[in-house]
């Protein structure tokens, strides 16, 4: 396999010696209060996971297993009940410019143009950039996601795939260390989805970002991830972490044709199957 050669293409490799941990979750337990029912629901229990710089980590698991909660905890949208979550060595106390996020339903401001949506992170946080630098970055990232010429378009004028590329540009424009993606391609049709996966791989290969990516699709997990974290049903716990040693860029190597791909896919499916069945039956 051309692993070594492919690894050399990306700036940093998770398996390489001297890997720096970027996200460290220790005994993380998070939940929600259900005020009406006077109950509280544990979404995630005792999550221990270290994510290194430049790593692409994919979380898979049945619906309601707490994947989104984990990403929200990294983003600083929810607080841990127990345990800690650290980003770059500091406990997370709230959102910050070191983390960008891509949302399943795009979450673009419908009253803002493409350009204005991409610029929004600059308006909300002070990054000590000059006006020229900001303009240049907005232009650069719109170009990176292949939307030059659409700067003045409104989201309602764009297709799903294009909207999500705006979402990606917005997440990348502040050049965060960490890119969080919550099922970003779930609402996009299959053909566009495959193209978007390959583009995302290219974007992060360029920027060397650490990515935490949620998906329901095992194929997507294997094709994108350096590691696939399988999470069990409620309360979410890590069932297994699968290393995906396939060469990058995955789309150039046509990894779907490799026997290892099928084995890996099958292995993850076995892990997820029982959990998915449990969810389907509605077992609490």
């Amino acid at each position: 396999m051309k692993v070594a050669e492919a690894k050399a293409l990306s700036e940093s490799s998770p398996a390489a010696d001297g890997a720096t941990p970027v996200i460290v979750s220790k005994g993380l337990t998070v939940g929600y209060k259900l005020h009406r029912e006077r109950k509280q629901l544990t979404a995630l229990r005792n999550i221990n996971l270290t994510i290194n710089r430049g790593e692409f980590v994919v979380l898979v698991g049945p619906s309601g297993c707490g994947k989104t909660t984990f990403i929200n905890a990294i983003a600083g949208l929810v607080e841990p009940w127990e345990g800690t979550i650290e980003v770059n060595g500091r406990p997370v106390t709230g959102p910050g410019p070191d983390r960008g996020m891509v949302f399943q339903d795009y979450a673009l401001m419908p009253w803002r143009t493409v350009e204005s949506n991409v610029r929004m992170p600059f308006e909300l946080q002070n990054l000590n950039l000059s006006k020229e630098e900001m303009n240049e970055r907005v232009r650069r990232y719109i170009k990176l996601v292949d939307l030059s010429g659409f700067e003045k378009s409104y989201p309602y004028e764009l297709s799903g795939g294009m909207k999500q590329r705006v979402g990606i540009a917005r997440a990348l424009v502040s050049e965060p260390d960490i890119l969080l993606a919550d099922e970003p391609f779930a609402a996009i049709d299959a053909m566009t989805r495959e193209a978007m996966q390959s583009e995302l791989e290219r974007f992060v290969a360029n920027t060397g970002q650490t990515v935490v990516f949620i998906t329901h699709s095992i194929d997507e997990a294997v094709i994108l991830g350096d590691r696939v974290v399988v999470i069990s049903y409620r309360p979410g716990q890590i069932k297994e972490v699968v290393d995906v040693n396939l060469p990058r860029p995955r789309f150039d190597y046509d990894v779907k044709m490799l026997p290892e791909y099928g084995e890996m896919r099958d292995h993850i499916w076995r892990l997820v199957k029982d959990e998915a069945l449990q969810t389907a039956r509605g077992v609490q």
Binding site: D146, G149, F150, S153, E157, L158, S159, G161, M162, M191, T192, A195, M196, S198, E199, R202, F251
Partner: peptide, 16 residues
């Protein structure tokens, strides 16, 4: 560099 297939381009591009 990967590009998206043509079906992804919507009305805006058709008009521009």
């Amino acid at each position: 560099m990967a590009t998206l297939d043509d079906s992804d381009r919507t009305s805006v591009e058709a008009h521009t």
